[in-house]
Amino acid sequence: MSSDTTDDIYDPAFVKDVFDRCSDQYIAFSWVCSFGFTERWRRQCVEALPELAEGATGYDLMAGTGEVWPHLLRRRPDLATITAVDISSGMHRRALERLHRHRAHRISFIEDDVLASQLPDESADFVVSTFGLKTFDRDRQTLLARLVARVLKPGGSFAMIEASDPKGWLLRPLYLFHLKTVLPLVERFLLNGAQDFSRIGVYSTNFGDAGHIAESLAAEGLEVRFRKHFFGCATSVSGRKPLT
């Protein structure tokens, strides 16, 4: 396995291995260790999407276990299709087991590195991503912004959210203690994650916030709104591709 350096942890093969190994416990880990905020933030991310037309089609990038799908279908029950893209076969399997069964006619899955996938130009009315941005370094975030701009139809919308470093918040030291000390202990004694969940904490602290992806999306000509959630413990970007 690759060494645990900053460069190595963003390699697609490394990311796939991490999430394949922790996929069985990922849902429980994210719920417990975020005190349920991840579900609230997923809902807020979907709510931030500009209005979706009837019969819209789109992509869930770095889809993980598919936990955003119910929020999308609740917001717009007449969505035509959601194409989920994720590099991890383990996360794909968990998504199929838990959420896909009654939505098979509405959801398709591409198991691939998002940046290597051949998604067609102007093929999506919407793009959404929840808690996958942290696995991209800044160069890859720039490439992701280019992909989002390319696959969106004119007038199409996007929303993405990620756990972030709440710089300037009075309780930030406590938050970082939770992320860097408490979560590895939870993993070690309760989840047997072989350091994979603590590595997710490393991704989160390295990520900072969604400021860079916001700048990259704007540089691609998209209309962008940046937003902080719960004192900056999560940050999101949302917006639209201009019609012309």
Rank of each mutant, 00 (worst) to 15 (best):
S89D: 15
L61T: 01
R74V: 05
Y59K: 06
T135Y: 01
D121Q: 13
Y26C: 05
H92A: 12
D139H: 14
I107N: 00
F29E: 04
C45S: 13
E111S: 08
S123D: 06
G64N: 07
S117V: 12
L49H: 02
A95L: 09
C45G: 03
K134D: 05
F126L: 08
V32W: 10
A56P: 03
G58S: 10
A116T: 08
W69L: 09
D137S: 15
T81R: 05
T65G: 07
S117R: 05
I82H: 00
G36W: 09
T142I: 09
E47W: 06
E122W: 10
D112Q: 14
R40Y: 11
G36K: 11
Q141M: 12
I110E: 02
L119N: 03
R42C: 07
C33K: 00
V114L: 11
A124F: 05
E47F: 03
R94L: 10
V128R: 01
R140S: 10
D60H: 00
G55P: 07
L72H: 01
F35G: 10
R138C: 09
R40W: 13
W69R: 04
A56T: 05
V114H: 01
T38W: 04
A48F: 03
D112K: 12
L119C: 05
R43Y: 00
W69P: 02
R40L: 10
L133E: 03
L79H: 04
Q25C: 09
E67H: 11
G36Q: 12
Y59E: 06
R138E: 15
F35D: 11
L133P: 00
R75M: 07
